[in-house]
């Protein structure tokens, strides 16, 4: 076992890990941050996405020791300081961008990184940007709407109902 330290959601944390301990496991089991989910074994589904120094990373294929002393943000760190939903989180609720909620943390983390890179994406850019995150419930329609709405764009134009 090796001691690892890092910053998670703005707070310094440390814990004992094995060489094989994944970041997702360290967050969930070591720190009790169970908002980060594990949906597959092959880095395909994206339920485990967190930010490492602002970059979206799949924490199920990242070793905890590899991100020592880095700044990690998880879904638990995405709300506003007063606990209210961030603009992106609120857009997911407003547009019914989630159903069972299991893929949602990874979707929000990926979408946040996408918008940081590209503040006014097109529908096609949103779809391409979410390609590494699988949702089995929504058919993506309302997730795409939510991300476009969070970017301040008029979603009625792309998704008439």
């Amino acid at each position: 076992m090796t001691k690892v330290t890092m910053t998670v959601n703005g707070k310094p944390v440390s814990g004992e890990v094995e060489g094989r301990t994944l970041l997702a496991s360290f967050l969930r089991d070591g720190l009790g941050l169970t908002g980060t989910h594990i949906g597959c074994d092959t880095s395909q589904c994206g339920a485990c996405v967190v930010h490492v120094d602002g970059v979206a990373v799949k924490s199920c294929t990242t070793l905890a020791l590899d991100v020592a002393d880095r700044a990690i943000t998880t879904i638990e760190g995405m709300a506003n300081a007063d606990g209210s939903l961030s603009v992106l989180q609120q857009a997911f609720q407003d547009n019914h961008g989630l159903q069972c909620g299991f893929c949602t943390p990874g979707m929000v983390m990926t979408a946040a990184a996408l918008l940081a890179d590209n503040p006014k994406p097109t529908e096609a850019e949103v779809r391409a940007g979410l390609e590494g995150n699988i949702c089995r419930c929504t058919g993506y329609h309302n997730i795409v709407k939510a991300v476009l709405a969070a970017s301040g764009q008029d979603v009625a134009a792309v998704a008439a109902e």
């Binding site: 989910h37 909620g101 299991f102 949602t104």
Partner: peptide, 14 residues
């Protein structure tokens, strides 16, 4: 949605 969007959902594995 509030709990699911803030990482406070409680699934069996949690």
């Amino acid at each position: 949605d509030i709990r699911f969007l803030t990482g406070k959902g409680r699934y069996t594995a949690d």
